[in-house]
Amino acid sequence: MILSIQHGFSYWWTLALSVVAAAFLVRLFILFHDCVHESFLPSKRANTWVGRVLGVLVFTAFDDWRLSHLRHHVSYANLDTRGFGDIWTLTLREYNQSSKLNRWLYRLYRNPVMLLGFGAIFNFLLRNRLPGRKVQHRQRMSVVFTNLAIVGVFLVAALTIGWQTYLLIQLPVIWLAGMGGIWLFYVQHQFEGGYWARRSEWDPLRAAMEGSSFYQLPTILRWFSANIGYHHIHHLNARIPNYRLPECYNDVPAVGAKEPLTLRQSLTAFRLKLWDESQQKMVAFP
């Protein structure tokens, strides 16, 4: 990509290469995600430091994101503990009882253009530059050091290839990778049927098996997404590394019986906006 700019090729060639680079960056984020769960490498220390390095590449502070993501794992599909590392989801009753302003904001948030397009830039370039809610000193410093490292990369690039070249490469890559990452996270928990429950009735087994999808992707996309499509297995046991998930799927009949979500079926997921507690399923806007 650097050479395509320096030798004066059409920028369309650079953008075409950015699609491939973004696919690799999505894979790096899943490896970063495995380090968060201490499942990528045998050593806890190795997972932490590899995760911190990968965090600079994916514009996400390791310790800060780790806290919010682990909260997601213990609270996902619980209607009384929403708000940690998940897609903003209202129940149908909550939506009907909301003010016009809140309804408008919710509709704007759930719009595919906003969620994928602007959401990718907002989350990875802006939101991740600040620590999460109710974090401790370690998580705050993680954000500070990650931000300093990103600035360091920018300065080195500016002195070697030029800051214009760096931005012409980095911005489309992080944007496309961000869209891919948000889409994967979206369809892992927002699909036909699904599972949500109030705290008193919440069942972690059902949350994993019914509230997390098995996203059946083509082989090449499964590799670039580091098997994160086996998401129901990941929520059953987050310590299983990504490279063992297909083996687990094939060897354990109970998880192999999970109905897959195909690529074509997943494209209809964006019409699902609200959780209907009476029907126990995701529904579209009224």
Rank of each mutant, 00 (worst) to 15 (best):
L205N: 11
K281W: 02
F32I: 04
E192H: 05
I121L: 13
L54A: 05
L261W: 12
R138L: 02
S278D: 07
L130W: 13
S278K: 03
P286N: 08
F118R: 08
I174P: 07
A197E: 12
L25N: 15
L57C: 08
A269H: 04
W12E: 12
V156R: 01
N227I: 12
K281A: 04
I228A: 08
L79T: 02
Q6P: 06
V20Q: 02
Y76S: 13
L245N: 01
Q164G: 14
Y109V: 03
W196M: 09
Y195W: 02
R206E: 03
Y11F: 07
F145T: 10
G83V: 04
T14D: 12
A120D: 10
F122M: 12
I240R: 07
I87V: 14
R264Y: 06
P253F: 07
A157D: 08
G229T: 12
G83D: 04
G211Q: 06
V252P: 07
I150A: 08
L116C: 04
L184W: 09
L28M: 15
T60W: 13
L15M: 08
A207P: 12
L155V: 11
S225Q: 15
S39Q: 01
W202D: 10
Y166Q: 10
F185L: 00
M179F: 00
I30R: 11
S266G: 12
P253G: 07
F62G: 05
T146Y: 08
N78V: 01
L92I: 02
I2L: 04
F224G: 02
L70E: 02
R199W: 11
P241G: 10
R127Q: 14
G152D: 00
F24D: 11
R244S: 05
N123A: 14
N123H: 11
G117R: 05
A77E: 13
K134Q: 12
V144E: 09
G229W: 09
T262N: 00
A254F: 15
K273D: 03
L168M: 15
P218K: 11
M209W: 00
R107F: 02
K258V: 12
R93G: 01
Y195P: 02
Q164V: 15
A16E: 03
D203C: 14
A77C: 15
